[in-house]
């Protein structure tokens, strides 16, 4: 696999994404909303008085947890929104044929196509987590004189769970693209990916007791499924059939 070809495909896809302002701006709607929810919650807590530092710290952590959990939806939503259109658009605008006439391999094409759906969502999550940590720490400092965030769990979510969810969404969409019989089916089926992933996040972070065992098992599960989807996408990706049979 030649990295420069993957990088060029990502650059091109990202330039195209950026040129479509409405789609590009819409990518930031959910992260900003979830971030504002977290900041609002932190401000509300900073206005309440309590005698116990421990209670206050716990209160900030629990107040931010909903926002941090909700932000985990972002890589999945972004991956599906951008990814479902990625190969489909190349086909419908007839740019797939000249692209496939270059020396790009299937693996390079799929990895390159995975970058644009994956990276914007991930970067949005990382930025939102960082901003939220900073806001909470600034608000809490006068009373706690201690750093509240990042907690170990929050860092785990930020650096492990969020990328894995992004990969799951991206590879899921690419697998569907390589399976779909036509462009519209690929787009419609891709949205189905969102539901189990979002359900999984809700169950793990909102309903199951928070423990390292649960988080670890969740992360390993995501990694295994994502890898399986990538392998499947590469194996099933059939450029001649996309070129010939997709309408």
């Amino acid at each position: 696999m030649k990295v420069n070809r993957v990088r060029e495909l990502f650059r091109k896809d990202f330039a195209e994404l950026r040129s479509n302002r409405s789609v590009f701006i819409s990518l930031f709607v959910f992260p900003v909303l979830f971030l504002l929810e977290g900041i609002g919650s932190a401000i509300a807590r900073s206005l309440t008085t309590t005698s116990s530092h421990a209670v206050l710290v716990a209160s900030y952590i629990s107040g931010a947890s909903l926002s941090l959990d909700l932000l985990l939806f972002v890589p999945v939503i972004t991956a599906v929104t951008i990814g479902s259109n990625s190969i489909v658009q190349e086909k419908t605008t007839h740019s797939l044929e000249p692209l496939l006439a270059t020396p790009i391999t299937d693996t390079e094409l799929l990895v390159g196509k995975a970058m644009t759906p994956l990276l914007p969502g991930l970067i949005a999550v990382w930025v939102c987590y960082t901003v939220l940590f900073a806001v909470i720490d600034v608000l809490a400092w006068p009373v706690t004189h201690a750093i509240v965030f990042p907690t170990a769990v929050a860092l785990f979510q930020m650096w492990i769970v969020a990328p894995l969810l992004g990969l799951l969404g991206t590879f899921g969409v690419l697998t569907i693209s390589s399976w779909a019989k036509d462009a519209r089916a690929a787009q419609q089926m891709s949205t189905v990916i969102e539901l189990p992933a979002i359900g999984l996040i809700l169950v793990v972070f909102l309903f199951l007791p928070s423990s390292w065992e649960v988080l670890g098992l969740f992360a390993v599960g995501l990694a295994v499924v994502s890898y399986a989807l990538l392998r499947m996408a590469i194996r099933r990706f059939d450029r001649p059939s996309i070129l010939v049979s997709w309408r």
């Binding site: 070809r5 650059r11 091109k12 330039a15 040129s19 479509n20 007839h94 740019s95 000249p98």
Partner: peptide
């Protein structure tokens, strides 16, 4: 060098950006 039935250019990019992309793909 292939010219397909439909030009299949990236419409939101300039001619030079299209050519740069394809040139880089060919190394």
């Amino acid at each position: 060098g292939l010219l397909p039935e439909v030009p299949g250019l990236y419409e939101s990019l300039s001619a030079m950006e299209n050519l740069r992309f394809h040139g880089r793909m060919h190394g």
